[in-house]
């Protein structure tokens, strides 16, 4: 922490680090504040909004508020300087994650001793892919107060972190990195790289992306083969439409999303009646979230879902595989392919 405090006093390193891991000249010069999946703005705003109390804690921060009027290029230049000079120094050692999906990325990419806290959701094996690794980490409920108690040098938040929480974090001067849910496989890869860069582990990010791509290609079926008509039923009767990441995964598994024919948006409610009427080959239903009951998941237990299994293949897929898009997507594709292998063979023979 001590040597890092010095580092934090230098102009924000994050905009530079948020770029793809291998620093190139173009990346450094091209740093902008409009990165979709990451908010490089955040740490910079910290400087300007910082209260006097924080300034006392961390006197070096004073320089940053003066940076506000300075051109972006200057910041980018400094960022590159740090990146090239000593990337190891940029590694935060007290990461606090306030979002289930940043939990997973942190647990996959960061050194375990550098993670100060993850959310309580990450420890539930029914909901989270990295529950085992999260088990011995202190859990938080996603609030700013808890985050500050760990004296973080980087707070990881998601799109669903309440604006009040984010504003509070900025006000008290914590460096914040935001990661929104990716909507395409390309964005998944980019997010892993961005995340790895932010926590100072670019090589691990590259390796994870390469591994995921290799496994995904191995799991995918031949796109020229027959397509099985598929519809997804999620808790509360939602289905997932075209233009989504899940849609891309279905294509990888040789499945055609019927939501596209129904003029359904990316994420929309569908009545059980319409699902019954679809004449699909495959119905993908979330397998029950382990533990407590809810009406949301009760719809998946409606007798008609069981009755429909005489007409279509009902595949139960653990929601955690695609709740936080990442390497677990490969398992989702694998399970879908395995559950429909015989149907595909049948369609091929026809």
């Amino acid at each position: 922490m001590s040597d890092l405090t010095g580092l934090m006093a230098t102009p924000s390193p994050w905009p530079g680090l948020s770029r793809p891991s291998t620093p190139s000249r173009q990346n450094c010069v091209g740093v902008t504040d409009n990165d979709v999946s990451l908010q490089p703005e955040a740490p910079v705003q910290n400087g300007s909004e910082r209260s006097r109390a924080d300034g006392r804690d961390n006197p070096g921060h004073h320089d940053r508020s003066k940076l506000r009027p300075v051109k972006l290029l200057y910041r980018a230049f400094l960022a590159c300087l740090i990146l090239f000079a000593s990337p190891a120094l940029a590694k935060p050692t007290r990461l606090v994650s306030l979002n289930q999906c940043t939990d997973e990325l942190a647990l996959r990419l960061a050194d375990p001793e550098n993670i100060a806290s993850v959310t309580w959701l990450a420890q539930d094996a029914g909901n989270a892919n990295m529950a085992l690794a999260a088990r011995d980490k202190p859990a938080n409920q996603g609030t700013a107060e808890e985050a500050m108690a760990y004296r973080p040098d980087l707070v990881l938040v998601g799109a669903f972190t309440p604006p009040t929480t984010r504003a509070m974090l900025k006000q008290i001067g914590a460096p914040v990195a935001e990661f929104d849910p990716p909507e395409t496989l390309a964005q998944v890869r980019q997010q892993i790289r961005d995340f790895a860069a932010v926590i100072g582990e670019p090589a691990r990010g590259e390796a994870l992306v390469a591994e995921m791509d290799r496994d995904l290609d191995a799991a995918s079926v031949d796109p020229r083969g027959p397509k099985l008509k598929t519809i997804i039923l999620r808790p509360n009767g939602y289905t997932i439409g075209p233009g989504s990441l899940v849609d891309e995964l279905l294509a990888r598994a040789g499945l055609e999303n019927m939501a596209a024919r129904l003029d359904i948006g990316t994420y929309e409610q569908i009545s059980l009646e319409r699902i019954a009427d679809l004449d699909a080959d495959v119905l993908i239903a979330n397998s029950e979230i382990a533990g407590a009951p809810s009406l949301a998941t009760e719809g998946l237990n409606h007798p008609i879902v069981a009755a429909l299994s005489h007409h279509m293949r009902v595949v139960a897929l653990p929601a955690r595989l695609w709740t936080c898009p990442g390497p677990a997507l490969v398992d989702a594709v694998k399970q879908l392919v395995a559950a429909t292998r015989d149907l595909r063979a049948l369609a091929q023979a026809r």
Binding site: E273, A276, I304, A307
Partner: peptide
Amino acid sequence: RDSIEALALVQLR
């Protein structure tokens, strides 16, 4: 007969 229409009528409507 367990047709889809019959299911929708009996199990839902």
